[in-house]
Design a binder for these strands. Structure first.
Length: 881
DNA sequence: AGCGTCACG
DNA sequence: ACGTACGTGACGCTC
């Protein structure tokens, strides 16, 4: 079947330009829009498999609409030269791909696309329009879908008539009426003053079209609205005309002539080289002779070590060497080890697990710290081997952690990913070798051994290139002095595990069962029927249809039943309270009783979490299987879960040490705000101090409400404040929230200055950094989309704070582990929960640990405000409070 | 697999 | 007028 893809060239180029930082080639040629365009194009070609493709561009200065409305597009700022110089390059790109492009003097890309979709529609062709312009939604029909780019150009959102109905409650053609009423500043379509999307949608749902609205002005509710409509009848009609995309432009290209039969690799490769798109080169299908040699089809030389012949390979074990430990499964606390890949210059080996188990020379080499090893996720290897009483030492470069530091946004990279970036040898993603989901299967020996050997070889080839990239961004120290040592500390903690009192959990579970049964009965009675309380859909029907409670907030799929909404509904009906309680207890049962019990290791009676060191965008850790960073504490009923976390040795204690207000202290340091620094130097309660300053009262006059509000403002500041967010949190109006913020910034002017500067900095560099130079890229910081841009701006404010706090506790963990060893202490570090460390401690070390832990944590990094740590201990995690 | 919800910092 | 608080992971339901 034919599938025509029509691309709005100008729109995509624009969005790509503003979404990506201003990249340039070594010759100074700007390429960010070209890169964004290319990424989008590759994605479309791969995912949509089009048979026909055409890219339309605007052409000529005088568009036909000018005569109708002189100001049309008048408000549009001139295209910056950095962008306009990229259009010829985009044309080259399309030529390299043998993709048809088209422009028509005096017409816009919209009109060309509008006309061609009509042609295609008449031929019953499946057609997809790629654009960033919502106006184009008017072209949607049974055969025509519109894909809107999101997050710059990296993601797309497909609209068929169904999605438009769901999102706007409109038919595609009514999009024109929508624009006619609300206007569009970017296109300088005036619309009706005072009418935004909300009002426009309301009017259209009622009257259907601009014309019909204008005929019924008298019936429209709202005096001011009526007046605006009456005074702007012409403007509304003109706006609608302006928003209408032409379907009969004199386009001489026929849809048949846009046939696309794939591209030849050479011109594409040449173009990418010219643009210096190194990472894209590997994505060129069937590319050049180089890759063919290295690629799948090419022979790959490696040897499998057999048990009778290990002696032959002894001299192959060199330093440095790349090591890859292959295991069957994600969770390395349980996954069987399949074998090892080893690689160095001219060496590529696979050592099956059975052979490795018997090969003592190999095991000694593995445990020798003097034998330098390059790895991908050394923690995984270390822990997995530890479960088999094997040691790996001498890890000097961890490419998993390195690529995380280079770009934290790339989610869970595999060796295959770094191979495509940095190596010559080709590596298949694990999923392609093993299959996924239920179809997962360890492949036959021949396939497995080659895959693992390739991985090791890819690592070997990548390391020098990754090192160069690290040096370029000045990230070597962060890797070698922080993340790599930390990974070994984490490995010890994970392997150590935390003892769980399974019996206690079971008891709690039984109590919960009883309570939940009672609550279920109560809820059914109050509802007058039984239903699945855990189904937001069914619950919504009961609350909002049957009981007729007001809908305060909606989600994509229906009315929201989230806790904040239910709390507001509580006065209306007694069922609400029961539901909230049911939810709370249900969560405890499913996640913390049942979920946690499943994770108890049968051999140790402990839970062994996995700390992911390369997941978060800010530099924090995360914890999975089980997640031990979200064990309940805020509500007493949930907090009891912590009673089940106990020391693993008779007579020991659990000791918890947490940083007090670390993020606000970090903010004081990096903003240099004199007032905030003063507050911390005087050791004041920071929320009380904020309340004093913001409300201008003495310490004794601060009420609990004032303190609570000040606390919320402080949280907001750390998150990158907005009046809306604060108003939601405090349940106050936006105006009031805005006033709080204004008063805050008046007193803490250094904080205000920091917020402004960091956003400016982010716009200039395209990234922000923490105190230890951890980096986060913010591709949306220059986006023309208000939402994306605002989000990126808040991220720019928050990440240096959250990320620096993460840096500090990571430093503290490394020092802590060192101190425990140096001082010959038996105490063990077990967990990290973002701003706190949990230990198990023998009684005889309680005293020293209460000194040592805060000392190490408070002095992990010198700031211009003191860091403060509180310590508590008890017979369980619950009692360490 | 995606969504809504909710647990934590 | 725009529409949000920052960062995570696990669960049950729905398709």
């Amino acid at each position: 079947m034919s599938h025509l893809v029509l691309i709005d060239g100008n729109s995509i180029a624009n969005r790509a330009f503003y979404a990506l930082p201003l990249l340039s080639t070594s010759a100074g040629l700007h390429t960010n829009a070209v890169l964004g365009f290319t990424t989008m194009l590759l994605k479309v070609l791969e995912e949509m498999n089009p048979t026909h493709v055409l890219v339309a561009f605007d052409a000529g200065k005088v568009v036909f609409r000018h005569s109708e409305f002189a100001e049309y597009k008048g408000g549009r700022s001139k295209t910056p030269s950095e962008l306009s110089e990229q259009f010829p390059l985009i044309r080259d790109l399309l030529d390299a791909f043998s993709i048809r492009r088209f422009e028509l003097e005096g017409y816009e890309a919209d009109d060309i696309i509008g006309t061609l979709t009509l042609h295609a529609d008449q031929n019953n062709w499946k057609t997809t329009v790629i654009t960033g312009d919502k106006d184009m939604l008017q072209l949607v029909s049974d055969h025509v879908s519109v894909a809107l780019t999101r997050k710059g150009v990296s993601e797309i959102e497909l609209y068929t008539p169904k999605e438009i109905e769901e999102k706007y409650g409109l038919k595609p053609l009514q999009i024109i009426d929508l624009k006619g009423l609300m206007g569009d500043t970017s296109d300088n379509i005036p619309g009706v003053p005072g009418v935004g999307e909300k009002t426009a949608l309301k009017l259209l749902h009622e009257y259907g079209s601009v014309e019909s609205v204008l005929e019924n002005i008298d019936k429209v509710s709202g005096k001011k609205l009526q007046e605006n409509l009456r005074e702007n009848v012409d403007k509304a009609k003109l706006s609608k005309a302006l928003a209408t995309i032409m379907r009969d432009a004199p386009v001489e290209v026929t849809v048949e002539e846009t046939a696309y039969e794939g591209y030849t690799p050479e011109p594409v490769t040449d173009f990418f080289k010219k643009m210096e798109f190194k990472s894209l080169l590997s994505k060129v299908k069937g590319a050049g002779t180089d890759d063919e040699k290295k690629g799948k089809g090419a022979p790959f030389d490696f040897a499998v070590v057999e048990s009778e012949h290990t002696a032959r390979f002894a001299d192959k074990l060199t330093s440095p060497m790349a090591v890859s430990v292959e295991m069957d499964g994600e969770n390395y606390h349980h996954a069987p080890i399949l074998g090892f890949g080893l690689a160095a210059d001219g060496v590529s080996l696979y050592v099956p697990w059975d052979v490795a188990k018997e090969w003592t020379a190999f095991q000694q080499w593995l445990a020798d710290d003097q034998q330098e090893k390059w790895v991908f996720d050394g923690k995984r290897d270390t822990v997995s081997l530890a479960w088999h009483e094997l040691t790996m030492a001498g890890i000097r470069f961890d490419s998993y952690l390195a690529t995380y530091l280079l770009n934290a946004a790339e989610s869970s990279p595999q060796v295959a990913d770094i191979a495509s970036h940095y190596a010559d040898v080709q590596v298949l993603p694990d999923e392609e070798v093993y299959g996924k989901g239920a179809k997962r299967l360890v492949p036959e020996m021949g396939v497995l051994s080659e895959h693992v050997a390739r991985k090791a070889t890819a690592l070997w080839q990548s390391v020098p290139r990754i090192r160069d990239a690290m040096a370029e961004s000045k990230l070597e120290e962060l890797l070698s002095d922080l993340e790599e040592p930390l990974s070994l500390v984490l490995a010890t903690m994970e392997k150590q595990g935390v003892k769980v009192n399974e019996h206690r959990l079971q008891q709690m579970g039984e109590e919960l069962d009883t309570q939940l049964e009672k609550l279920t009965e109560t809820i059914y009675e109050l509802a007058g029927t039984s239903f699945n309380i855990n189904s937001p859909k069914q619950l919504g029907e009961i609350l909002f249809d049957k009981l007729d409670l007001p809908v305060l907030k909606k989600t994509k799929t229906g009315p929201s039943t989230s806790a904040d909404v239910l709390e507001k509904l509580a006065p209306y009906h007694p069922i609400i309270e029961a539901i909230l309680h049911f939810r709370q207890l249900g969560k405890l049962r499913s996640t913390y009783i049942e979920g946690l019990t499943k994770e108890i290791h049968p051999g140790t009676g402990k839970v062994h979490t996995i700390f992911n060191q390369a997941t978060t965008a800010t530099g924090r850790l995360s914890s999975t299987d089980p997640n031990l960073q979200n064990i309940p504490i805020r509500l007493e009923e949930g907090r009891k879960i912590r009673e089940a976390f106990i020391p693993s040795e008779e007579g020991w204690y659990i000791l918890a040490a947490d940083y007090s207000q670390i993020e606000l202290r970090v903010l004081a340091h990096i903003s240099g705000d004199a007032n905030l620094i003063d507050a911390f130097q005087k050791g004041m309660d920071i929320h009380t101090r904020t309340a004093m300053d913001v409300f201008d009262v003495a310490e004794t006059e601060v009420t609990s409400l004032m303190r609570r509000q000040a606390k919320a403002v402080n949280f907001g500041i750390v998150y990158g404040i907005s009046d809306y967010g604060l108003s939601q949190n405090l349940n106050i109006t936006r105006k009031e929230a805005g006033e709080f913020i204004e008063r805050y910034f008046a007193v803490f002017s250094g904080v205000k200055q920091y917020m402004e500067d960091i956003v400016k900095q982010a716009k200039q560099d395209g990234f922000v950094t923490t105190l230890l130079n951890r980096r986060r890229y913010l591709p949306d910081i220059k986006s023309s989309n208000f939402n994306l841009r605002s989000f990126a701006e808040r991220t720019a404010m928050n990440t240096p704070i959250q990320g620096t706090a993460a840096d500090i506790i990571k430093l503290a963990m490394i020092r802590m582990q060192g101190s425990l060893r140096e001082q010959g202490l038996e105490s063990r570090m077990l967990l990290q929960v973002h701003d706190e460390l949990i230990f198990e401690v023998p009684e005889k070390e309680l005293e020293i640990m209460q000194q040592l832990v805060p000392d190490v944590m408070e002095n992990a990094l010198k700031l211009n405000v003191p860091l403060k740590v509180d310590v508590n201990y008890g017979r369980s995690w619950y009692e360490a409070k």
